[in-house]
Amino acid sequence: MHELDAIDRRILNVLQRHGRISNAELAERVHLSPSACHRRVQRLEQTGVIAGYVALLDPRRLGRPTTVFVEITLSGQTEDILDAFEREVALIPDVLECHLTAGSADYLLKLSVRDTEDFARIHRRYLARLPGVAQMHSSFSLRTVCQTTALPV
């Protein structure tokens, strides 16, 4: 694990919220020279603390206003069953996240869909065909109360 100092943390906080900020503006915000700031950002990238840069899209504007969470319980916990499930679920384009969980289900999926009909299509075409599935429970999000991609640093 990379040891972060206060300046690294300030850089990360700014970049998480303003990924397209120029190096000059970033340096000004964190009170560094542009060259020192650039070196620190490069080090954070090289050590993997900064894993990448993305554009965050608005699902509503893309016609995918509905978030669905799907809890999946598998028929067993053998490595073959887990591997087969994980391999196949990773191929489903509508799955935004898939988490192996401890609790009432084995996996929790997050999907972004157009509406209930779109989810029914995805369910029939992909989810119902996943290997090793014993049970599936779906929950539709009514409203997003809070959401962030920024990690506390």
Rank of each mutant, 00 (worst) to 15 (best):
Y53R: 15
R43V: 09
C37I: 01
Q77G: 12
E28L: 06
I72M: 01
E25N: 05
E45S: 08
L91V: 03
I92Y: 08
T66G: 02
H18Q: 14
Q46A: 14
L12Y: 11
S33V: 00
R9I: 14
L62T: 08
I50P: 10
C98E: 09
P34T: 05
R40T: 04
S22H: 01
A55Y: 14
R40N: 06
T78N: 08
T47K: 10
C37M: 01
R61E: 11
N13R: 12
H31Y: 06
L56W: 07
H18K: 14
L44W: 06
R64T: 12
R43I: 06
R9K: 15
L74T: 08
E86G: 12
R9C: 13
E88F: 04
R87T: 13
R20Q: 12
R10G: 12
P34I: 01
I21D: 05
I92Q: 10
A90F: 04
R64Q: 10
H31T: 08
T66N: 05
C98P: 03
V14T: 11
Q16S: 15
L96I: 12
L74I: 04
D58N: 14
I81W: 03
L32Q: 13
Q42I: 12
V89N: 05
L26M: 05
T47S: 15
G48M: 08
L96D: 11
P34M: 01
F69G: 01
Q46T: 10
L44F: 07
Q16P: 07
L32R: 12
H31V: 07
Q16I: 04
R39D: 03
I50V: 14
V68P: 00
A24Y: 04
G63Y: 08
E79V: 07
A36Q: 12
T73N: 01
L74M: 04
I92G: 10
V54E: 06
D94M: 10
L32C: 11
N23Q: 13
T73Y: 00
R39K: 14
L82K: 09
C37F: 01
T73G: 01
E28Y: 01
L91E: 15
E79I: 05
A27I: 07
T67F: 04
I50R: 09
R17G: 15
V89K: 05
P93S: 10
S22T: 15
R39A: 13
